[in-house]
């Protein structure tokens, strides 16, 4: 295998990992854009999405492709309920209080996962059609590596249409621009926030399913690291900005794979890569790559 084909292989791996980070990062950035809240439970929502789909495929007669839609929808409902129960009552409290609630929700989902699903890793039943290796000009690629970016791009196009063209999407943007004024203009805040949480959780669950198909090992704590890294992707891209979250996701995914591929000696530091990038970006562009800098009002 030539150097070029090896490089291409790393590139496809990086792009597919980056797509997954991007999908999860969107949920963080949408919630932060509207509520200024780091939804720490988002990574665990991602985990829940994989498990719900897993159980749906194994224990119901629903075909897997339908479950790949029902699973994320159910996860979306869980995300929506989470906001109603744990965040909504605290909307007027100090920011740190709601953050604690988010941390509590994250603990709760993780440990419920351990109690209900068991601590032992489970194998995700990947349909064969998604999981076989094809050779394109000497580059062997697993089909799923190819599917992940395609699905991601389709979802992004849909999301973009929703945000820019529909009324709900416009209301979302208005809320994230100016919360109070938007609410004075008659926007139903509760509905918009619920939609935001539903969509963010839905996308995270889709990302989770593809994650499960790519790395088929399910654990109740599997959401922690991808969650953190995706959050970093959102911050690096400029939090509150959806295009930024996508860019940040690809940057981190590609960077992580390339670091391991080009400098194998640093493999152990793989998990630190995202944090190093984060700190460097924050120091030179505190609002992220695509974020708008806000001037301090006195």
């Amino acid at each position: 295998m030539g150097n070029l084909s090896l490089f291409l292989q790393h590139l496809t791996n990086g792009i597919s990992l980056g797509s997954l980070y991007a999908l999860i990062a969107i949920g963080y950035t949408m919630v932060y854009g509207i509520l200024r809240l780091i939804n720490f439970a988002h990574g665990d929502i991602f985990m829940l999405g994989v498990y719900l789909t897993y159980f749906g495929i194994l224990y119901t007669a629903i075909p897997w492709w339908l479950m790949f839609i029902i699973g994320p929808a159910l996860t979306g409902v869980v995300g929506l309920l989470l906001e109603r129960v744990a965040y909504k009552p605290l909307r007027d409290s100090p920011r740190i209080t709601i953050l604690i609630s988010a941390i509590g929700a994250s603990f709760l989902l993780q440990n419920l996962g351990i109690v209900l699903f068991g601590g032992r890793p489970r194998a995700f039943p990947v349909p064969h059609i998604l999981n076989h290796v094809v050779k394109v000009r000497g580059v062997s690629i697993n089909v799923i590596t190819f599917i992940i970016p395609v699905v991601t791009i389709l979802l992004l196009i849909g999301l973009n249409y929703f945000i820019t063209k529909t009324k709900t999407g416009m209301a979302m943007r208005a809320l994230s621009r100016d919360y109070e004024t938007a609410s004075l203009m008659g926007i139903d805040i509760n509905r918009i926030i619920s939609v935001t949480f539903f969509m963010g959780s839905f996308l995270a669950a889709v990302g989770g399913i593809m994650w499960g198909a790519r790395y088929p090992q399910l654990m109740p704590l599997m959401g922690v690291m991808p969650g953190l890294k995706s959050f970093i992707a959102a911050v690096v891209g400029g939090i509150g900005n959806i295009a930024g979250a996508v860019a940040g996701g690809f940057l981190l995914g590609l960077g992580e794979i390339m670091l391991v591929a080009l400098l194998p000696r640093l493999t152990g530091y793989r998990d630190a890569f995202a944090f190093v990038v984060l700190i460097i970006i924050l120091l030179f562009k505190p609002a992220g790559l695509m974020g708008s800098t806000q001037t301090e009002k006195v």
């Binding site: 007027d92 409290s93 920011r95 919360y179 109070e180």
Partner: peptide, 10 residues
């Protein structure tokens, strides 16, 4: 009473 800004404030 909490003195910090509430999170929805921007």
């Amino acid at each position: 009473k909490g003195r910090e800004s509430s999170y929805a404030e921007n």
